[in-house]
Simulated assay, not measured.
Amino acid sequence: MPLAEIPLCVWRTRGRSFIFRGQSIRYWTAGQGAPLLLLHGFPTASWDWHYLWAPLAQRFRVVACDMLGFGDSAKPLDHRYSLIEQADLQQALLEHLRIVQPVHLLAHDYGGSVAQELLARHHEGRANIASCALLNSPLFPELCPSPLIHKLLLSPLGWLVARSFGRDDLVDTVSQLYGPCTHPSESALDDCWSLLLSNRGTRILHKLMAWVPERHRYRQRWVDALQAPGVPLRLIQGAVDPLHGARVVERYRQLLPEADAVLLPGIGHFPHTEAPAQVLRHYLAFREQPLKWLPQRVAWS
């Protein structure tokens, strides 16, 4: 049975705000139990998780925020955006909510890089991570080609490209990343555009692209964090994602001999919106494994 969606207009009414380094951050929380932190991708927002929100909240205390520069959170123009700061933001949100117990992570894309930084901090004794599941994230940046729009935004004329970026550009960019049979509806694209426009977000798109060179800069630190023992990991990957598809799983298996990975045939870059029921099933199976971490085989679903 398909999972019910939460309309964006309803989602927005359920959000709350807190102040992080002088900037207003929108966040959501629901449910009880072990804390589960959801980390969204680029250039979207926490609403990406709306299909999974209710079923996850039935089992866990789910927490998510629109990161700085995304969604309905502040998008300061004169700001140097950084994945490191986004990890600081996640820890500040947990502190704001007085969550002190170990936190489980479920992350996609840009959020996957933030999750890797949190894993690195865990192994340094500066965070407390219980487990981490990753969806189509740039774990190995050398394998992840940049779309044309990313290259343009990173160019000296990126500020101009950002300010002229329109809904049609979003549709063209996003549509190339979905599976052949899982394209989003026009209303879903309208909602994504609304989140991008919120707080005049197109003005800073080029500034958010700092994450591309940053993930190369911290590549070894973040791969080391994946390879370090002690935190259960699962990779759930849309197999036909042109950015982070099956080749990422191959490298993941090479570098993590006991890798736990699931490939979703026919699914592209957004498995949590393209195939939310499959993602939920594989995530809950991951969480239901014995506390003692056991090697897992790569599975196809």
Rank of each mutant, 00 (worst) to 15 (best):
L94Y: 09
S17Q: 13
I236E: 05
P271N: 12
V103A: 05
G230P: 02
G22S: 07
G158F: 13
H150G: 05
D169G: 12
A285C: 04
R253S: 14
I99A: 06
C65Q: 13
Q237R: 01
L37S: 02
Q91H: 00
R247S: 12
L263H: 02
Y218V: 12
G15S: 15
H244K: 04
L152S: 04
R203P: 01
A277N: 05
D169H: 12
E288I: 05
A64K: 00
A210N: 14
Q227N: 03
A107C: 08
F18L: 09
Y178S: 03
G266H: 03
S146H: 02
L39I: 12
M67S: 12
R234I: 13
W211N: 01
C132R: 00
Q289S: 13
D66R: 03
D109V: 08
L68D: 09
N136T: 00
Q278A: 14
G201C: 04
D168S: 15
S82G: 06
F42P: 00
I99D: 08
W53K: 11
I19N: 01
D241H: 04
I99Q: 05
V103I: 13
A239F: 01
V62G: 06
L157F: 14
L37I: 12
A74F: 01
P180G: 13
L208R: 06
P265N: 06
S17E: 14
I204W: 03
R217M: 11
L208K: 02
I84L: 07
W193I: 11
F270M: 08
Y51C: 08
V240P: 00
L226E: 06
E250N: 08
V62C: 15
G69A: 08
S46H: 07
T273P: 01
Q289W: 02
L105D: 10
R217S: 08
A210G: 07
Q32H: 11
L205E: 05
G201P: 03
R167K: 15
L148P: 00
F18W: 12
P141R: 01
D191W: 07
H244N: 13
V279A: 04
A261Y: 03
F70R: 00
A107V: 05
F70H: 15
P7W: 12
A299K: 03
A115G: 09
G245M: 10
W47M: 13
A299E: 14
S137F: 07
V103S: 06
L36S: 05
E85R: 03
M1P: 14
V298F: 01
L119M: 10
L119T: 11
H183M: 12
G158A: 06
F20L: 03
S155Y: 04
E258A: 14
